[in-house]
Amino acid sequence: MTFDEIVALLDTKASGKTSVIEGKTVISVSPENWSEISAILKNESKLNFDYLMCISAYDKGDNKVYGAAYNFYSTVNNHYLEVRVEIEDGISIPSVVELWKAADWHEREAYDMMGLKFEGHPDLKRILLSDDWEGYPLRKNYKEPDYYHGLPVPKDKSYWD
């Protein structure tokens, strides 16, 4: 299926709950509709997106809006879809772990790096950083800490610069 067909199909299934981002072949979904749409993406036999390739969390750079880009692929129907769910800081996104187990670690990574919260995730904790890390490093406004566990973080090469 082409992107337009997918959009048309989604419109009939859940009209008004998805929108196409202008100039891109990307669908935007609001967090409250996301659990419904994701179920359609997975279970609707014409779509059958059984392969969740990647969840990329991103920061728009305005300290407010964060987003997650879901890249789907269907091994059966051989088509792609990118869905974006954008939220304001502090709002959580419904988790899709139930539908795609691959989302488990990807959502944990998004939480770890960008501080996105996923509602319904069985075990949302840090994955790459240590549990007591403060802040979310991939946010644009992240500041590296001066100390980690009392150890100064070397930031300058005084003898070298």
Binding site: C54, S56, A57, Y58, N71, A102, W105
Partner: peptide
């Protein structure tokens, strides 16, 4: 602005 790498071994 953002580079996300989907690593196969991770999955």
């Amino acid at each position: 602005m953002r580079v996300k790498m989907r690593s196969p071994a991770f999955c």
